[in-house]
Amino acid sequence: MKKHIHGWQIYLAITFILLGIMISTQIQTQNRLMSDLSLQSTSDLSIMLKNLTDKRWQLSEEIEEAENNLIHSQDDYKDDSELMSRIDSELERLQLINGTIEAVGSGISITVQGNLLSSDLVLLINELWAASAEAVTINDFRVTPTSGIGYIETLDKTYLTCDGNVLHEPITIKAIGNGPILEKSLTMPGGIADNLSLYQIYLHMELQEEMQLEALPTQPQLRYGKIPDKE
């Protein structure tokens, strides 16, 4: 066979080289073609469009979700600020009620003339609380929910006490709140002022535009009471 065919290998090699170039070129062209949109078939473009549209919606949803998360985060931050503000406000309110801070505001100043009993003093203070007094002092001793009013006796005289503090005469009660209402609550017919007047105890009341009530000298200690666990 080799005798009859001269140089066939060369011719064949040349054609093979050309064929190799063509195949290589075609592969490269096909690869380029695959990434060229203008030459895709309608069905392929439709599928690609659908896929891209789906992807777009998916990304839009992700963006929307991310924006919502951002808004929620900002709201949480705002909520935290508002919460802290409310907590501060509530803390101040509780401090005012518990007498751990000074109280400033309008109200009424009552000076008691006469021999007041401890029970009378308790009734008087309760009447002020009932008339929405927000802070009360007796001779500049702050009255709190845990205050105790009593008396002590000495050899020559009996003294009223508030939380163990001796109340010297004249006893002056100051209450922060709506002054006219506080006054009316005491002076209403058949009220405590009338009752005390029967015992020659008179109340001299004076509305005050601005008063400052002292805070408790020491913070009340709570050692046994706890808030129950929330379930």
């Binding site: 064949l12 090699a13 093979f16 170039i21 290589s24 490269q28 062209t29 203008s38």
Partner: peptide, 30 residues
């Protein structure tokens, strides 16, 4: 051996030369 080497050389040459055929002609080249 020579024709097979020729084919391999052709593929290699085509890769190196990297002829830029217009994409519209890809179908005809195939």
């Amino acid at each position: 051996l020579i024709p097979v080497l020729g084919l391999l050389a052709g593929i290699l040459l085509g890769s190196i030369i990297s002829l830029q055929i217009p994409l519209t002609m890809a179908k005809y080249l195939s």
